[in-house]
Write a protein that binds this DNA or RNA. Structure first.
Lengths: 109, 109
DNA sequence: CGTCTTGGTAAGTCATGGCTTACGGTAAGT
DNA sequence: ACTTACCGTAAGCCATGACTTACCAAGACG
């Protein structure tokens, strides 16, 4: 499984998306993150593992705690993918619209 | 469930992402799409339903066939979300780096 | 009309994934 | 050294979801 596949799969879960949104405010330890969600701490640990495997977050040990923060690598990759797809889709739309006016009648003939 | 939730969930499946990539080349009927994948036609129909509910594709009946094509609405929404998230994440990174030089020693004191 | 093509839906199977509790392991504080 | 705080992992449960086959509706076409 590529990192991109893993990233999209990771984004499929609402809790994981919320975690990413939360981490925009800066690094946070597991306990703090878990405190914001109605699920157990191990559940959050598992989500963080998925996000880490997808290169969407990185860990940094700090004493007995582990600080998680956003990983620019995965985020940049996702953004690039979207940007490219969007552009190509736009081209397709244009080509569609500008297609040699086929049966494009005003009023009824 | 919001359209955005539905969109991200829809992107979680590799086959559905492939379908979207395929539809960049323009509208296609179900049979043609199904022919490109190693799964049955009903499976594709179900995937298309998910994509439609997520506003990522639209259907247009054409005789006995149904042409599926990309839906700019959902795609634009996703792109906007990513763009915003990326920008905010960038700000967070900057704030992180430019934080009042805390214990930033050159060489060892 | 009858038939053939096209495709959506129902029902059932099976794997996956998200959750929980229980446990173990490491660093900090006394 | 003993205890406490923090967190990852294992094991098991259960809902969800991706797939199959079977069936049915509707437009094209002789």
């Amino acid at each position: 499984m590529t990192y991109q596949d893993a990233s999209f799969a990771a984004l499929g879960d609402p809790t994981r998306r919320q975690i990413l949104l939360l981490l925009r405010d800066g690094p946070a330890p597991v306990g703090t993150i878990a405190g914001r969600f109605p699920v157990s701490r191990p559940a959050i640990s598992q989500h963080l593992k998925v996000l880490k495997d997808a290169q969407l977050v990185v860990v940094r040990p700090a004493g007995t705690r582990r600080l998680y923060e956003l990983d620019p690598r995965g985020l940049a990759a996702l953004r690039a993918f979207f940007e490219q797809f969007w552009n190509e889709a736009l081209l397709a739309f244009k080509a569609e619209v500008e297609r040699p006016t086929r049966a494009r009648r005003r009023r009824t003939p």
